[in-house]
Design a protein around this nucleic acid. Sequence first.
DNA 1: CGGTTTTGACCAGCGC
DNA 2: GCGCTGGTCAAAACCG
Length: 618
Amino acid sequence: MEENLVKRSDHGGAVMKEKKVDSSGDKETAGRREEVASKVEEKSQYHENDNMKPSSPGKKELSSSKQVSVKTDTERFSTEPDSMASSSSRKEQDDQLESAKAEMGEVREENQRLKMYLNRIMKDYHNLQMQFYDIVRQDAKNSTATTANNDHQEAVEEPELVSLTLGRFSSDSKKDDKNKTSSQGKEDERGKEGLSLGLDYKFEASKSDLDDEALPNPSPANSCQEPKEEESWPPSKVLKTMRSGDDEALQQNPVKKARVCVRARCDTPTMIDGCQWRKYGQKIAKGNPCPRAYYRCTVAPSCPVRKQVQRYAQDMSILITTYEGTHNHPLPMSATAMASTTSAAASMLLSGSLSSSQPSSNVPSIANTTTANLHGLNFYLSDNSKSMFYLPNSSLSAASSHPTITLDLTSTPSSSSSFPFNRLSSAYPTSARYPSTSLSFGSSESNTMSWGNGLLSYGNSTQPYMKNQIGALNIGRPQTVENSIYQSFMQKNNLNLPQQPLPDTIAAATKAITADPNFQSALAVALTSIIGTGNNGGATQPGRESLGQNLKWGEQPLPITSSYSQTVKGNGCASSFLNKSPSSTSQPGSSMFSPPSLPFSTPKSASTSPGDTRNHSN
DNA sequence: CGGTTTTGACCAGCGC
DNA sequence: GCGCTGGTCAAAACCG
């Protein structure tokens, strides 16, 4: 601020000096207006400190300029040899002072006007923000209402619901009440508290139609206290050793956890999803020359989350990452994007909300599959676990006993006909105990989503905003979300968004945002990633009270490709899901997302590369 | 030296 | 019961 004031003083002096040279009053006024306007602009950049005294800048400016002016006049007149001129010069001086005072008053008024204008703009800006949120929330409410009709049980157990909405906030009754009161503040809180989204399937299963999934702790009350107890990932052997008798129900009715499978183009051994993983095993799976690597989460010693990483046999550039389990610890900021996404997917899977089906005949590899083109996302249910990746020989036998949801982030064009998953056949298999589900995030030409450090940028990523977003998130400012959203949207629309969006630009962006269904959908994901913190004190409560609850899959087509960029260890894949052609990835900022063309060029390589032929198979 | 990776061995589930 | 396969363990090796 000090610097700013000094700047203003300098400008003021310059103005008054200019006045001496050019006696034209109009020009002076115009120049001064410009000067004041520029100062107001400057001030707008510091509007956070706007509670400074009104018009103080102008005052300072004028006083300083006045001083300069007087001094200059004195110097000038004092050097005049003619003594007769001294009296007249005094008179002129007085005139100058008078005129300067008059100008000072004018400028002060001008300054006041400009300041009012600025305040009005800021007010409009905030109003637009509020309107934007209201619209989004209203849409969420509508969609939730329709969903509730389809599943009354969800309404009954609403507090437990983890409904994910792409493109809208959930405004579910009770939860909405909370949100209404302090939705924005809540988001801020979440941003401050740290993100702790986990995979929500467990919780979600409590309300799911999959009755055979008797979850140990479906009640939300348990969520906070004993997240670890809920885990059923450890194999029976481990369960025997790890658990005494607390989970009798669990052992009596072994629960097969939902799995979230993420297909993404990735050239590194494993997809960097923000969590820390330790490899504990590797095996050659039947039908796939690439070994399957087993990782467990090491963020917390007792975290039961596992993941399997394997290359897609038919396209080695595709990395198939299967997540299973629920984090029982706060997630790093960078891990929330994937966690929220997978939790959303798991929620979709277990909520039984995948209902519609599209008969088709061009996917022969899946014998009994259902697709739900729900809200523009493609969900695939299959009871043929061995073909869930169109790998007839790829064995994911465990998947036959696990509900699996697949998020396909490798598809290219958004047109639903171009992606094999997009058309599937037959109805929901009643015989399928645990169907597998696929989410297809196809990319459109311009609609791309990219995650970065838990944040999402939407559109043509011409430059990464992660740094700003992270910083903003860390300080939990209310405008963080909006800003990143605005930025992302501006990117999408190829609007050269300045670092400090101008009010009118923001207004235009707001307008466009509210009119763009795709953005709404992406927005929800972004919000999930950004503010989907685990609430309740830190520990990830799978699916409970997490922000994911506030999100429901949008109803709009979402031809997007998610680009999830994370770096935790450095050698991992910043899992680029951008499906753009290599040329398209050459755009600025794409270095963060574009994977090298060679899938197995990573230094450490190995574990999942086809060249790694170490047979860990038994 | 502590954490991670490697890798042979072990176990469980499933189909025949 | 046997073989196959997936999943995990755990000691050794490796790494920073």
